[in-house]
Design a protein around this nucleic acid. Structure first.
Lengths: 224, 224
DNA sequence: GACGTTTTCAAACGATCGTTTTAATCAGGC
DNA sequence: GCCTGATTAAAACGATCGTTTGAAAACGTC
């Protein structure tokens, strides 16, 4: 584990530090020191700091995408062009994030991934990279979700899809830190440990409820 | 507008740049150049780069908190210790983010605020600062929400509150960037402009649906 | 053991970082 | 006019940034 080759140790250390502090805030010297490697090792193995980030993302995103695609293929084989069950579709989206071997024990990576998706400006070339890595898969999910919610008009669907994505990252990437932060503040009502599989089940329930809620009729409010 | 005093121009420029690129990624030289000020102006007016961030947050967070507190006070006056209507509580949480004059036309600030809450490690001293600025208010919201959802057991409530927070930032801070990003990718199904008030209404509906959904019974799945 | 290749190492590169210093400029009161 | 305080300006500080260099060390092959 600790005596893996330098390449892997660099990827592991960078992943953790990038997730915790952000890409720009972490220096190559901190990464190489944490990995027990020489400063020049990053440029030797990855060409540049950007290359390190890129390699780090590809290492886990590629198998993650494959797992999600497999879920979607199974749904397509089972249901064809008719609308797919909403819960199964949500599970296809969420579950690989905590069950795929390449990522299930890498909470730091989920946190980093959420950073990249929510604030892709963290690095200039992040948007092209993410689109290249998983752009078509994202589109496939959006279309399947659209088909599963045919009664929503386009605008409402856009809003709810965005909320879904926010809730997803909250559940798949921010949950542990959230609990730890509350505990740090002395709040004793938060669970001491979050179970990833449980989080998936709860997230499916929550998003299902939000997605199928009745649409808001214009002008309606229940102020105070 | 453009000839406001140096202090305000610095705050405006830093707010935009911090939100777009992140705190660590933006240099003082970029900020002062964007503000049309001298490099030393930041240290003169705010003492340090951290002081600039702190001042920038306080400028809008303080009135925002006051508005949210006012909403809560009104709910408390109307309903006392009995559970408050869920939609009204959600509105008290969301609406000030897009209606308060200090913040309603500052989408950059909402984006920056979401950065600070989701990844407070962006700056070492961010967590104490945020707790100091709005820690008690957050607790008040959590307790009111807990009272409004008495049928949920503690663990389920924790998960759903976390999802709520994720969906909230997605709707209040990431929506415009999300639409712009989709448009950049050539997707033509996204609205060309997002209406903030509409986003609040949709967000209330979504979160309401998710929060009141039936709890997941253990072992239940509808795989594929 | 000598070989070519791969990897590690210490040192330095120029650039940029946040901050400080010192002087110049501006404001209003007398 | 001059004086006092507040603000701006230019220049430099030491530190750290990502990157490059060239030699040393480690490696498998003949």
């Amino acid at each position: 584990m600790t005596d893996a080759d330098t390449r892997s140790r660099l990827l592991d250390a960078a992943e953790r530090l990038f997730a915790e502090e952000g890409f720009a805030a972490v220096g190559l010297r901190a990464i190489t020191a944490a990995a027990g490697a020489n400063l020049a090792a990053v440029n030797y193995h990855f060409g540049s700091k950007d290359g390190l980030l890129r390699a780090l993302l590809e290492r886990r995103v590629t198998p993650l995408n494959a797992a999600q695609e497999a879920h979607l293929d199974a749904l397509e084989a089972a249901h064809g062009t008719s609308p797919w069950p909403l819960d199964a579709l949500l599970r296809a989206l969420f579950e690989p994030l905590v069950t795929e071997p390449c990522i299930r024990d890498a909470p730091h990576f989920r946190r980093l991934l959420s950073r990249m998706y929510l604030y892709r400006d963290d690095r200039d070339h992040m948007e092209p990279t993410l689109n290249e890595l998983s752009g078509s898969l994202r589109l496939r999910f959006v279309e399947a979700l659209r088909t599963a919610l045919p009664h929503l008009d386009t605008e409402v669907f856009f809003y709810r899809a965005a909320f879904l994505s926010g809730a997803m990252w909250a559940g798949m990437a921010h949950l542990e830190e959230q609990a730890a932060c509350c505990a740090r503040s002395g709040e004793n009502w938060v669970p001491t440990h979050v179970d990833s599989q449980r989080a998936v089940e709860e997230l499916i329930r929550f998003c299902h409820g939000g997605l199928v809620a009745a649409v808001t009729s214009i002008g309606e409010k229940d102020h105070a």
